[in-house]
Design a protein around this nucleic acid. Sequence first.
RNA 1: GUGGUUGUAGCUCAGCUGGUUAGAGCGCUGGAUUGUGGUUCCAGAGGUCGCGGGUUCAAAUCCCGUCUUCCACCCCA
Length: 451
Amino acid sequence: MKPSIPKGTRDFGPEQVRKRNFIFTTIETVFTKYGFARIETPAMESLDTLTGKYGAEGDQLLFKVLNNGDFLSKVEPSLLEDKDSSKVLPNISKRGLRYDLTVPFARFVVMHQNEIQFPFKRFQIQPVWRADRPQKGRYQEFYQCDADVVGSNSLVYEAELVQIYDEVFHRLNIPVTIKINHRQILFGIAEKLGIEDQFQAITVAIDKMDKIGLSGVKEQLRMAGLATPHIEWISELLSQPNLENVEHLLGDSSAAQEGLLTIKTVFEYLKRTSLHQQIRFDLTLARGLSYYTGCIFEVAIDTQVINSIQMGSLGGGGRYDNLTGIFGLSGVSGVGISFGAERIYDVLEAIDGFPPSTASSLQLLICSLDQKGLGEAFYIAHILREKGIHCDLYPDAAKLKKQLKFASDRAIPYCLILGSEELATQLYTLKNMDDGSQAKLKLSDLIDQFS
RNA sequence: GUGGUUGUAGCUCAGCUGGUUAGAGCGCUGGAUUGUGGUUCCAGAGGUCGCGGGUUCAAAUCCCGUCUUCCACCCCA
């Protein structure tokens, strides 16, 4: 059979793993510095835990795991005849692959609430799975890097998370804009116009601003059934999207007031920190229909600095008031952010931003010209490794040409050559692969040179 | 989920409206150099043309299905 892997999944070779780890360890370092502790949760969760948390569309994108055993025999024959998948599904699948890290985390918090000290700061870097249609930068298996704080309403965490975004992208050397908004400000628009029931339609339309422009948003609102004066009013609001103007136009909405105050407080906290990245209030940021209730964040490439790459958001997050409520623990507020590692990878690849590969961690390769030399090479490798020297031996007494090419291809800086002459004199030929020079050394001198 | 797109040697790609043994560059292997790589020269190996079916005297080429890739929606990281 021809080997293949499922669509939207990937293998990672050594070089890709190195580059990915550069991203992961950078994120981990910063998370840890801010006091977040790493946890891990299983790839599979009970389907009960996952379904209904991501909306009807999200449920469609969940990967379900079939029950073990003869699962069909336990299903009512009438159910099978109806061919209604949604009815049969609960009978044949109890588990699914996690869709994100936030819901499993909420489950974790509720299950371990008695062991956890609040506010609890945790981070998690693990793969998640979505049965989405793949595109470039969108996969069915991909990693998320999440940091969340639960059990506190304090806005210092909003400010901290902004700092984390700032520092991670500074360390990765990617210029970004950190956008911040507040759900209550968006709700204020609907409230002010007295059309609270249209809140979702309004946010979905506004969210597309940077993609389809003001006229496109107006068209969307029209299709959603908003009255023309309302559309014009929203249009005016969107064309003056700085904090002062929004305050002026929305100030008499109580919801918007709360949101505006929150944003101002966060900016106040950040005022005396030296941020490297652009941070901007952005009224058009809406973050879909997800569970956020307070501040929302999104990170995108700073197009003022880099305009050559089209790339969606590199991260997002926000505050959710009652995430653990569905698992029976109410009154726990949380705020969190996520990094899109796959997209960050693509950006770093595009701007050539990865640190240069030290192609080999090996300091030297031991080459032997005959069987006797190979035995000696094995022994010398053992001695050198005991001294902590990174070395390897070519596994056969192949042609020297082949062995040197092997070292050359792997950018190993030195080769030690063991032939009959070297064995007889106990003086080993050390070849510098950079300039081609050679020297004869005793084993003790060799150890001195490399340790 | 809707509409479109892609698949030829290890890699990047040619192959026009169907017509003999499907090509190139790079890479790989061997030799020039029987103990010296990264340069050069010479030679060689390597392909179920994504998979399955159909049309035809004849299919990499046309048709259908399927998988995969990428794109636009939807949504999202």
